[in-house]
Nucleic acid binder design. Structure first.
Length: 933
RNA sequence: GCCUUGGUGGCGGAAUUGGUAGACGCGCUGGAUUCAAAAUCCAGUUCUUUCGGGAGUGUGGGUUCGAUUCCCACCCAAGGUACCA
């Protein structure tokens, strides 16, 4: 049989689509299995060979599970809101929806070409109003919830209101803003509606707050940390300042401990769990309040070392701390203000990355030590960040290297409060070996005892208590962008109101321009038809805003992670218009059994999704509080860039072997112009880069050899390899096999198209093997042995996600069966099933060849039988001092002593020993013989 | 700095609980076939060698009859993260 992959692949892709072979049913007697890929952002560049790596792996697993009798859910969709489409819209005026649709179409073609077993009937797009209706709906549920620390879960805000009506808020143990006032039920009843709303906002799981952002006045927009380079915007190089802005936030911090605890229950890669653990950043310590001398103000700090409180010789506030302007003395005012201004120009990342420069200014004010009542100077310094802890540090220079360096730099005293420790050169931070001295009631105690004691004392004087602090901050949920989900929010008297569920989705309005308005409002500020008519529950023209019946709508949109935080649930019942999903259906699918995607989403998507899932669980909307049992990170595929070398002196282009001693610069050459032997197609290169049309190419052995280097696969490095060309030349099955053959799924590895000929010729050999199938040919013992060791290995490999070794196993199997001239249907039939998860098109074709009418996709996976692998002799490796020197064939049932006797009698043993008497002979039957001496 | 992962031929990589290092594939070399090329097939391919053998999995130690695998120290690379008080 000839391997006509183009015909075969087109035929079966068409068959799968028209027969809906991979459509999953929402109920079944079979056990369920949910295999999920991280859905892609459909960029304009299309897929490169790095993208499908994870999809191929998950597809193999999904197909394998079908062979194993599971009802498999394997959906795909698009994370289709995002910046590139918006950027393109700004440049060209083209509506992002149009660009996005075109990109999705191209993605779909590319994905279809690879033969994935997706259930496309469940496709979702985050930018589709039918989908984002439910993103908006979850937002409303969050708005209508608060976090009850007693029950340790999110609850309906109505319960909170009725508690306020009964008892006020003094008995409530809830997660809320720090500045929430205490009130009783009578006070609550006298509050205005607006005041009530203001207070409730301090409890809601999504709320409005003033948060600091990187504001670029010239661009009129907010920038992400990585859009800022050296304090100026990456695009255009405009200045960026820190600015407060009212934005929606998510109270993810309420879930900090549960997000930490939940990691114990899920089978995710340890590095990913570590990243989340560090991001949440739990630390135990104490909250301490320092009184400011001659004032009413108090400075709260969090410290992990309350035991060292007697060593505190100064305090440092973040320059943007609220108290700075209030406590600074007249003499220091100028210096402080200019320092604060200078700090505002630095990005947070910049401030944190710079460890070497020590800077700060004295405010002129003093705090009072809670126990000694001694004055403590209050400084400001940009190493303290307003968003961490309380934005203030109790500085103990003898116990913290950073405080030590700061004290040295500004000549602040460094009192020693440790017994028997020299601190003349550096701070002493070793908790385990600490004995406190010079510290009044703490003298002689170790870290633990001193900490306990000092917290007791702080509580007695009302200036502190033990506290667990989390590094995790509430997540800002507003974006000043156009191409995102609109908030279902309008404003009455400045207070946010939710649009009722039945009027969702609130669709994104059309705008003339996708840029921020001249007034500095987000792009939705350009919309003329963007006001909410409360009586008629419709969007109307802005002119009609009267703040009585017609109100302004929210101008921000939601961030990229909004749409991806619950899509895995929505796939289960993707087109339900009545509910986010049917409870019976999610009751059947429950959660994701296997999730495959990149580790770069560790602290974004994967943390936020866990948060949303826990919330949905608390509110009885989802049955599981973790959405994915098992997660695998696929590694990155790097590109192998190619370089030509231009001599800067002569202008000639030298082959790689000739560049020594010359003043050459490497220039990227497109990898498609280079063959497997690193030889450049010079004519094609000249056509590609016309400026080299007349350049002289200096060859070695008549060839131009390029230099090679492994770099990230990227358009700008001309090392992107497109799967379309490979499919065209070798077929999807070859590409699938080769991507897996490259190496372990989770490791990053370089791409080199040249190697694909190996798997391609394997598929040809496979076809050849099926050229003369004999229905009734009895399989030989050898045939059965080859088949069953392949079954065993492939099954183990798939279960362990070791797909690369399976491909080798197939090659060995086909090589052996070819050598054995196997034609037996009893062997070739199960082999086709083994291959089918990896190379599904050819497997279907061979299956048909074998006489089947139905798709191979649900054929039962062959059963391994150990009896065929039983051996009656073993080729023993004979080692001397652990080094294998020769081999010897001996029967399997031979005893230890007989083996030893046989080995010692062998002539090579005698030669090796050369007259010496062995000290010891180790015989492990069935394994090895080792002679020592 | 810290956390994580990794380091094996010219290249991608294999070696399941400590038991034959380099499977499988690419590339390369030689040969067959061909007018020639492609394709295909066969043989060889860790290094070294006086052809007996010897050395060898980042480096240096250790445990063991035996270490790519376990332990200690270090070096290098990639990714993540950061004055977290």
């Amino acid at each position: 049989m000839n391997y006509n992959f183009r015909e075969i692949e087109a035929k079966w892709q068409k068959y799968w689509a028209s027969n809906q072979t991979f459509k999953a049913t929402n109920n079944s007697d079979s056990p369920k299995f949910y295999v999920l890929d991280m859905f892609p952002y459909p960029s304009g560049a299309g897929l490169h060979v790095g993208h499908p790596l994870g999809y191929i792996a998950s597809d193999i697993y999904a197909r394998y599970k079908r062979h194993k009798g599971f009802n498999v859910l394997h959906p795909m969709g698009y994370d289709s809101f995002g910046l590139p489409a918006e950027q393109y819209a700004i440049q060209t005026g083209q509506h992002p929806a149009i660009t996005t649709d075109a990109n999705i179409k191209r993605y779909r073609e590319q994905l279809d070409q690879l033969g994935f077993s997706f259930d496309w009937s469940r496709e979702v797009r985050t930018s589709d109003p039918k989908y984002y209706k439910w993103t908006q709906w979850v937002f409303i549920q969050l708005f209508n919830s608060w976090y009850n620390k007693e029950s340790d879960k999110a609850e309906d805000i109505k319960q909170l209101i009725s508690e306020f009506e009964k008892n006020g808020n003094s008995q409530i143990n809830a997660v809320c803003d720090d500045d929430t006032p205490i009130f009783n039920s009578e006070e609550w009843s006298t509050f205005s509606d607006k005041k009530k709303q203001e207070i409730l906002l301090k409890y809601r799981l999504t709320y409005l707050a003033d948060t600091e952002v990187n504001w670029c006045p010239t661009l009129g927009t907010v920038l992400a940390n990585d859009e800022i380079v050296n304090g100026v915007s990456e695009r255009g190089g405009h200045p960026v300042i820190r600015k407060k802005m009212t934005q929606w936030s998510m109270r993810i911090t309420a879930y900090a401990q549960r997000l930490l605890d939940g990691l114990e229950t899920i089978d995710w890669p340890q590095p990913l769990k570590d990243t989340q653990t560090n991001w949440i950043g739990r630390s135990e310590g104490a909250h301490v309040e320092f009184k400011v001398k001659d004032s009413e103000h108090r400075i709260p700090v969090f410290t992990t070392r309350p035991d060292t409180i007697f060593g505190a010789s100064f305090m440092t506030l973040a320059p943007e701390h609220d108290l700075v302007s209030k406590i600074t003395t007249a003499e220091q005012k100028e210096a402080v203000e200019s320092y604060v201004e200078a700090t505002a120009k630095r990005s947070e990342r910049d401030r944190m990355a710079d460890v070497k420069t020590i800077s700060g200014v004295f405010t002129g004010a003093y705090a009072e030590h809670p126990f000694t009542k001694e004055p403590i100077p209050i400084w400001i310094g940009d190493y303290v960040l307003a968003s961490y802890g309380t934005g203030a540090v109790m500085a103990v220079p003898c116990g913290d290297q950073r405080d030590y360096d700061y004290a040295k730099h500004f000549d602040i005293p460094i009192p020693n409060i440790f017994e028997g420790v020299d601190i003349s050169e550096e701070a002493f931070a070793d908790k385990a070996n600490t004995i406190i001295g010079n510290s009044d009631f703490l003298n002689g105690l170790g870290f633990k005892e001193a900490t306990r004691k000092v917290i007791d004392e702080l509580e007695k004087i009302g200036q502190g208590q033990g506290k667990i602090n989390y590094r995790l901050r509430d997540a800002v949920f507003s974006r000043q962008r156009y191409w995102g989900e609109p908030f279902p929010v309008y404003y009455v008297d400045g207070m946010p109101q939710m649009i009722a569920d039945e009027h969702l989705p609130l669709e994104l309005p059309d705008v003339e321009k996708y840029l921020p308005t001249e007034a500095g409002d987000p792009p939705l500020g350009n919309a003329t038809h963007w006001a909410w008519d409360r009586n008629n529950a419709t969007v109307v023209n802005n002119d009609l805003i009267d703040n009585k019946n017609v109100f302004p709508l929210e101008l921000n949109t939601m961030p990229g992670w909004a749409g991806s935080s619950q899509y895995f649930n929505r796939y289960m019942d993707a087109h339900n218009e009545e509910a986010i999903y049917d409870s019976e259906i999610i009751g059947y699918w429950q959660d994701v059994d296997l999730y495959i995607g990149g580790s770069e989403h560790a602290t974004g998507h994967l943390l936020y999704s866990r948060f949303w899932q826990k919330f949905l669980f608390d509110r009885g909307i989802a049955p599981k509080d973790e959405f994915a049992r098992k997660l695998i990170n696929q590694g990155m595929i790097t590109g192998t860039s190619a370089f030509v070398y231009k001599d800067m002196d002569s202008g000639k282009v030298y082959s790689k072997g000739l560049i020594n001693g010359k003043n050459v610069i490497p220039i990227h050459a497109d990898v498609s112009l280079v063959n497997a032997s690193d030889e450049l197609d010079i004519e094609a290169f000249k056509e590609w880069l016309p400026e080299y049309k007349n350049a002289t190419f200096v060859l070695e052995d008549g060839k131009y050899i390029v230099g090679r280097e492994v770099e990230k696969m990227s358009k700008s490095k001309y090392n992107v390899v497109n799967p379309d060309n490979i499919c065209e030349e070798y077929g999807a099955d070859s590409l699938r096999l080769y991507e897996m053959f490259l190496g372990p799924l989770e490791q990053s590895k370089p791409w080199n198209t040249a190697g694909i000929t190996g798997v391609h010729s394997f598929l040809k050999k496979l076809c050849k093997l099926y050229g003369n199938i004999q229905d009734n040919a009895e399989p030989s013992a050898e045939n059965l042995k080859t088949l069953h060791k392949t079954i065993k290995k492939v099954e183990e490999d798939i279960e362990n996600f070791s797909f690369n070794t399976s491909v080798s196993t197939f090659m060995i199997c086909v090589n052996e069966l070819t050598a054995q001239k196997c034609t037996s249907k009893a062997i070739l039939e199960p082999l086709a099933i083994l291959v089918s998860p990896y190379a599904p098109h050819i497997a279907e074709e061979l299956w048909e060849e074998l006489g089947h009418q139905e798709s191979i996709s649900t054929a039962a996976f062959p059963k391994f039988e150990a009896q065929y692998l039983v051996e009656n002799s073993k080729e023993y490796p004979i080692s001397f001092n652990g080094k294998m020197r020769f081999k010897m064939e001996l029967p399997m049932d031979m005893g230890k002593d007989e083996i030893e006797a046989a080995v010692m009698a062998h002539e090579k043993t005698i030669a090796q020993l050369n007259g010496r008497a062995p000290k010891k002979v180790i015989v492990v039957p069935g394994k090895i013989v080792n002679i020592v001496g």
